[in-house]
Design a protein around this nucleic acid. Structure first.
Lengths: 344, 344
DNA sequence: ATTGGCACTCGGAACGTTCGAGTGCCAGCG
DNA sequence: CGCTGGCACTCGAACGTTCCGAGTGCCAAT
């Protein structure tokens, strides 16, 4: 059983260890924190914390270091977010002001977050999976090449060039446009994908069927792209400064950053607390090959539902600050997207 | 003055050092290469090479290591590309087969190149700077929101949503479309940008002028995007394996990868030899903050002119293999783009 | 329950020794 | 004159020893 003071000691250990990167001893705790008890008492508390596996000693006689479990307790029960400073808030505001489009907004978001935290920043794109198709437009580039543009009600646009197996004229194009529009406009992305699949089968011998099939195939690809989750990142270079924080090497992290898929799954599988904040610590990420890393994230509100923005760093990170930064950025991001949607 | 055999010794040193990552001594040279002379003779040659600053000794009595100048001589005079193996060629072929679009093709290109060389792969996008605008299309999303699509003859497409300061109807849209088309279709990107600038000035009091101005501004942005060089990369994670190859840290490299701008300039400023190959070694990259890295690249033929594909790695890299890989990939890439253009 | 005291542990720094790979130089040889 | 074997020398890497101090666990006293 851990006493109340024991928890305070854990908090002190986490804070000091994150600050100094060195195992913390009983003596340095009484020096840096006003516990009003002697080092020996702290030592007794530390022995209890060690029994509970909340802290551990790297060597027989050395200071203590929090375990992953210790960080977890710290984050869940002991940490309170450290609010951002005024300059930090204005930094976010000016960084995110007047983006030219969604890509730009997302890129700026991760840049400001990596700049605030000094960690690798990650952001899920708003999902278009539940959006509906509002427009399908065909532009003839040549008799046998058509540009296919798809627009969703959530602001997502996709475009792709499709070669055609036959030459068509403007009248044909109008026919095809009408046929495709009937299939997908007003439909949710998933539903549209089902309906478009039927058009891809070469059923009738109609003259335009080959062209329709080709266009349907391209539209299917575009729809698949809408359903796919995406991720933006920034600050990978900051990992180089932290090499020794990751026992083995930063290779798994760089790999994950390049892969994206892993991080995408990780981000979406994290569980949020009642404030929309999520934390995944050290070995909790082991199934993803990132047992040395921690991730904190905050939900933000996007047209297509909530998505997440956060940072990835060493287990020994400053959770309160990083959580606060992620939350602040998420809030601004939500607001930007809300304004954009209102204008639509 | 360096003798013929001296140059052979340099070649041996470069080869052995790249292979073993350890300073090479006179004795190991006579063991691994059939020079037919004694170690003492090699030592004399090495002394000459050291006078010429082609090699250097890390410590007073230790093997020798090539200097950047030594690598340069090796690459210019001593190296002959090592042709790829048959499996490697088929790997390229199957990797690059049937890309779904340009982005996909470029992504696969860098992936195969990083897989072949184990280094960070870089590829410039084909440039659309000299392309011409063939289509400008407006799609009404709402009375005050229009999707603007631009298409070039080099296969580049750009799309963006523009809010309008006033509401317009379909007839207005047709008018605007005609006005904008008159300004930019058939024009080269640069020329189009100049002409579109004029439409952005609020000169006349015409009713549609505010809308025209807004659309022109968006088109100007899209044109600027066409003029901008772009880069794709892969294999950043491989750097982690090579940490100690970069004396200081891999931070500058990761930074450059994230920045892109630096690498873009570096790639475009490299000078190619008569075979379209370019090499930039160690300190030659110092102005770009990459004095510890080398880059090799090969030109490839793209619709908008030649562009480059290559790899970045430690100065102590296997130049012949990497150059051969870059050249092979560049050739396949040229062919793919040529086929695509023929289909257009 | 808390505390001061104390013996104990162990990692890290400092230092010395040894070992061997590699060098430069030189006299001798074809 | 170029090449060679021989030799003294250098210096880094590896290893062992010593020393120091921060930190611990435990215990008797309060």
């Amino acid at each position: 059983m851990v006493t109340q003071r024991g928890l305070e000691v854990l908090r002190a250990i986490v804070q000091d260890y994150v600050a100094t990167h060195e195992p913390v001893g009983s003596k340095s705790i009484v020096e840096r924190h006003a516990f009003g008890v002697s080092a020996a008492t702290i030592r007794n508390d530390m022995a209890q914390l060690e029994d509970e596996e909340l802290i551990t000693a790297p060597h027989t006689s050395s200071g203590r270091v929090p375990t992953d479990k210790g960080y977890r307790v710290f984050v869940n029960h002991l940490a309170q977010l450290r609010p951002l400073s005024a300059p930090q808030r204005t930094a976010i505001e000016s960084f995110l002001a007047a983006p030219s489009d969604l890509d730009d907004l997302m890129a700026r978001t991760v840049r400001v977050l990596t700049q605030l935290t000094g960690q690798v920043a990650l952001a899920q794109y708003p999902s278009f999976a539940r959006a509906s198709i509002t427009h399908v437009e065909l532009v003839a580039l040549a008799p046998n090449r058509v540009l296919v543009v798809l627009v969703t009600d959530a602001g997502g646009v996709s475009q792709r060039i499709s070669p055609l197996p036959i030459d068509i004229d403007d009248a044909d194009l109008a026919v095809l446009r009408a046929q495709l529009a009937a299939l997908v406009t007003g439909r949710a992305v998933g539903e549209a994908a089902e309906r478009i699949a039927s058009a891809m089968e070469p059923k009738t011998g109609a003259r335009l069927q080959p062209a329709l099939g080709a266009l349907a195939a391209v539209i299917a690809e575009e729809l698949a792209e809408f359903r796919q989750e995406r991720l933006v990142m920034a600050g990978a270079a900051t990992l180089a400064r932290r090499e020794q924080d990751f026992r083995g090497s930063i290779h798994p992290l760089l790999e994950a950053i390049e892969e994206q898929v892993t991080l995408l799954r990780l981000m979406s599988e994290m569980v949020t607390d009642e404030h929309g904040l999520a934390t995944s610590i050290g070995t909790e990420n082991a199934p993803f090959g990132l047992g040395e890393a921690s991730i904190v994230a905050s939900n933000y509100a996007a047209p297509g539902g909530t998505a997440r923005v956060g940072v990835m760093g060493p287990t020994r990170m400053d959770y309160p600050s990083n959580l606060a930064a992620a939350r602040a950025v998420a809030r601004y991001l939500s607001r930007m997207l809300e304004e954009d949607e209102a204008a639509r």
